[in-house]
Amino acid sequence: MMKGVHFLVAAVLLALASSFAFASDPASLQDFCVAIDQYDSESAVFVNGKFCKDPKLATANDFFFSGLQNPRNTKNQLGSNVTLLNVDMIPGLNTLDISLARIDFAPYGLNPPHTHPRGTELLLVLEGTLYVGFVTSNPDNRLITKVLNAGDVFVFPVGLIHFQFNVGKTNAVSISGLSSQNPGLIVIANSVFGSNPPISADVLAKAFQLDKSVVTSLQAKF
């Protein structure tokens, strides 16, 4: 009888361990996996969306990027420019679950409401003053905001809509770390009004409680 109880307890513990084991991505079993194009090698191994270079062929340049200190062009409609260093820019980031971004803002420039479906963002203000915030999920959709100055840090939880707005009269610069080698980007306005093919204007008019002509006008802007 006791053996049966012990076996049952062991089976339950094993099942729990298995469920925890598959609850998140497995830890890397190698030092690194430098990403390469699938056509570069007939013997490459496909890992997490990228093929891996033979580790013996890795060089310092696979883990290197230069020039992030240089200001980016913000002469656009939004007055901002995001330079994302993900696995596509630094192949050595593959499987390491991290990326980096520099965001430049002209005076009153905006990084519009967007989400990163695969990464939490940790933002550090280097220059200027930013009004930042994110919106919690249903049912409350609560807006959490803060005005940040140089040296301040703010966290945007994974998947939540967030934004950054330069409320100062001078340029602003921030650096963000993201908890994914490729966090993804969904800009809300672009996705809703600029999808290809377009979402039905009838659908958007009802969803946003707008006149259909207003929706058509918004779609034309994208």
Rank of each mutant, 00 (worst) to 15 (best):
residue 1 M to T: 14
residue 1 M to H: 15
residue 6 H to Q: 10
residue 6 H to V: 14
residue 7 F to H: 15
residue 7 F to E: 11
residue 8 L to F: 13
residue 9 V to K: 07
residue 9 V to M: 09
residue 11 A to T: 11
residue 16 L to Y: 10
residue 17 A to P: 02
residue 19 S to F: 14
residue 22 F to H: 12
residue 24 S to G: 14
residue 24 S to E: 15
residue 25 D to N: 09
residue 29 L to S: 15
residue 30 Q to L: 14
residue 31 D to I: 07
residue 32 F to S: 13
residue 37 D to I: 02
residue 38 Q to A: 11
residue 39 Y to M: 11
residue 41 S to W: 02
residue 44 A to W: 01
residue 49 G to I: 03
residue 51 F to L: 09
residue 51 F to K: 02
residue 56 K to Y: 08
residue 56 K to L: 11
residue 57 L to I: 07
residue 58 A to N: 12
residue 59 T to R: 10
residue 60 A to K: 10
residue 62 D to M: 04
residue 64 F to Y: 14
residue 65 F to P: 03
residue 66 S to M: 13
residue 67 G to I: 05
residue 68 L to N: 11
residue 72 R to A: 12
residue 72 R to E: 13
residue 73 N to A: 15
residue 75 K to I: 11
residue 78 L to W: 07
residue 78 L to E: 13
residue 78 L to Q: 11
residue 79 G to V: 03
residue 80 S to P: 03
residue 81 N to A: 09
residue 86 N to F: 03
residue 89 M to I: 12
residue 90 I to D: 02
residue 94 N to Q: 09
residue 94 N to L: 05
residue 95 T to N: 05
residue 96 L to Y: 04
residue 99 S to A: 13
residue 103 I to W: 01
residue 105 F to G: 00
residue 105 F to S: 04
residue 108 Y to P: 04
residue 109 G to A: 09
residue 112 P to R: 01
residue 115 T to R: 05
residue 116 H to P: 02
residue 117 P to W: 05
residue 118 R to G: 06
residue 121 E to I: 01
residue 122 L to Y: 15
residue 122 L to M: 13
residue 123 L to I: 09
residue 127 E to T: 07
residue 127 E to C: 06
residue 128 G to T: 02
residue 137 S to M: 11
residue 143 L to Y: 08
residue 145 T to D: 11
residue 147 V to Q: 11
residue 153 V to Y: 07
residue 153 V to R: 05
residue 154 F to V: 05
residue 154 F to W: 05
residue 155 V to N: 10
residue 156 F to P: 00
residue 158 V to A: 13
residue 166 N to F: 03
residue 167 V to I: 15
residue 167 V to W: 04
residue 168 G to K: 01
residue 168 G to F: 03
residue 172 A to D: 04
residue 175 I to A: 11
residue 179 S to N: 13
residue 179 S to T: 11
residue 184 G to W: 00
residue 188 I to L: 14
residue 189 A to L: 05
residue 191 S to D: 09
residue 193 F to V: 01
residue 203 V to P: 00
residue 204 L to I: 00
residue 205 A to L: 01
residue 209 Q to N: 15
residue 212 K to P: 00
residue 213 S to H: 01
residue 213 S to F: 00
residue 217 S to M: 08
residue 222 F to S: 12
